[in-house]
Write a protein that binds this DNA or RNA. Structure first.
Length: 257
DNA sequence: CGATTTTGACCGGCGC
DNA sequence: GCGCCGGTCAAAATCG
């Protein structure tokens, strides 16, 4: 009987291993695609800035002095967009980024059925930073936070425990998006005994090799959990890709010179 | 009771 | 000029 059960579990494990491998590969491909998209964005962005400089000389050259001095940056560079995965059941539009925020408004926008929340830094008016938080259309577990401005103070020590700081030098939205996804508590980190395959994502714990039948069962369910988490991860990556793509296409058009 | 959140009203920019 | 829409204000409600 034990041998029979063992046979079933071995078969199940084999099937799951195949599925696991497929999902891992799919996930890898998607991550690669995201990276490529990110680098392409950087290239396009720098090209756009070069073009702007040649089309409107007063933006790019230094010659005339009767125009107002070019002290400010292109406005686009002031805002950064970050994507944070949260628990979909959690309806609050809060992004833990180490700073304290005061909500001052909420709106339903035309392009997205979920409400957009408006926050100011709690140190305002000394600190001018604002942020907007809205759920991603493709995946309601993703929060899209748009930061404007930079904090002129240190984050409070007891404000969420995250090390992520959105006001570090802002390069562009794509360059910023991976940071918060690595600090979110709902990141699917699976504790898994991988005596089965010997592979994993770095969060697994080692256990003795001579596990018995019960261990086989629990291993099986752990693998199932892991496969489920990978599927979720793939879905997340897809939703993220869509959100990033839309952010790129929705960038505010530069004002005419 | 002060701080924070909620929510409807208001305002300004923009396109037609 | 008008209407739409995103962003902000501010009074009321809620929380700790």
């Amino acid at each position: 009987m034990a041998a029979f059960d063992g046979g079933i579990y071995n078969h199940k494990v084999e099937v799951l291993k195949i599925e696991l491998e497929r999902l891992r590969k799919e996930n890898e491909d998607l991550r690669l695609a995201l990276e490529i998209m990110g680098s392409k964005y950087e290239v396009l962005h720098s090209r756009l800035q070069k073009n702007m400089a040649t089309i409107s000389p007063d933006l790019g050259s230094s010659h005339d002095s009767n125009k107002r001095p070019r002290t400010e940056e292109v406005p686009v560079a002031k805002a950064s967009q970050v994507f944070v995965r949260t628990n979909p059941k959690d309806k609050s539009l809060t992004v833990k980024d180490g700073f304290q925020w005061r909500k001052y408004g909420q709106k339903i926008t035309k392009d997205n059925p979920s409400p957009r929340a408006y926050f100011r830094c709690s140190m305002a008016p000394q600190c001018p930073v604002k942020k907007k938080v809205q759920r991603c259309m493709e995946d309601s577990s993703i929060l899209v936070a748009t930061y404007e401005g930079a904090h002129n103070h240190e984050p409070p020590h007891d404000a969420g425990g995250s090390s992520y700081s959105p006001d570090s030098p802002i390069k562009g939205l794509v360059a910023n998006f991976p940071c918060p996804t690595t600090v979110d508590p709902f990141q699917p980190t699976v504790t898994l005994d991988l005596t089965l395959s010997g592979t994993g994502t770095g969060q697994e714990k080692r256990r003795p090799q001579n596990f018995m039948e019960d261990d086989q069962k629990s291993n099986c369910s752990r693998v199932e959990e892991y496969v489920a988490s990978l599927t979720k991860d793939t879905n997340f990556t897809l939703a993220l890709a869509a959100a990033v793509a839309r952010s790129i296409t929705d960038q505010p058009k530069p004002t005419k010179a």
